[in-house]
Amino acid sequence: MKYALYTGCTAKESTPELLKSTMAVAKVLGIELTILEEASCCGASHLQDFDEFLSLVLNARNICYAEKLGLTLITICNTCQINLATTKDRLDNDEELKDRVNEKLKEVGLEYKGSSEVKHLLYVLRDELGYEKIKNMVKKPLSDFNIAPFYGCHNIRPSELQNITNKGENPYNPTSLDELIETLGGKAVEYVRKNSCCGFHADLQAPNTAAKLTGLALSEAIDNNADFVVTPCPLCQLNFDVKQHEAGKKVGRDIELPVLHLAQMIGLALGLNKKELGLEHNVTEADF
């Protein structure tokens, strides 16, 4: 299985453990990842607020490099996923827009064709590798853990866009992460806010809003006996991991809850060591 990996910025900067664990886990699972070194930032939905057309051009360019390799582009960040997938969806359904974008790309010798899919790692694991296969490779089942799945907005909403690649994941009752947790032998914590927003994208401009949303979600996970949270999105992870102390203050309680990346959790079950999973980079002690 070969894929083009779009790392996104966060995996190269503030969550180095994400890239580390992803590469390590992919190797064990027999997934060959080619990193798209030419890629640029997806704009994270903020560039889109300033210059929509530019964001389309840059993301079309990102996808071009996966097309050149003839591979599906996979993302390991929900926000990268939604921005790349939105670009793809818009260009694939609007010839005029595609032409306008390609006119620009031509200046750098590229052409967007629409031939590569854009998928998040989680759904590649579920739909292409298959949870059954992962199950057979589990070395250290997570049977001691109550794990709170946190899906992250940009993998499940808007469903009309996301269902193109996540095959009908219900944004009000998503199951892919829960099923993965069970696949790895863990117990998935049932709680209402598992599909809600962590607040990350308003963190700078509306810090109170972001902190409260983080606080509410983590509190609920704790109240349902979670040992740790797992999320496919490094932005949720970063927000939860680094800011949980501040968030706790906003909701009037102490919060101390480890937050793992998707790949880190899988790696634990596959028997990879802490170093390979970069657990030392997690701010809230994740000493498993």
């Binding site: 503030s14 030419e38 200046e107 701010v283």
Partner: peptide, 25 residues
């Protein structure tokens, strides 16, 4: 926790000139 990229090891995209060119145009 080693989560901050310092100016001297800030990652850069390959073919950065393409990106600059596209931003300009």
């Amino acid at each position: 926790k080693g989560k901050i990229a310092m100016p001297w090891n800030m990652p850069k995209s390959k073919n950065l000139d393409e990106i600059k060119k596209l931003i300009k145009s």
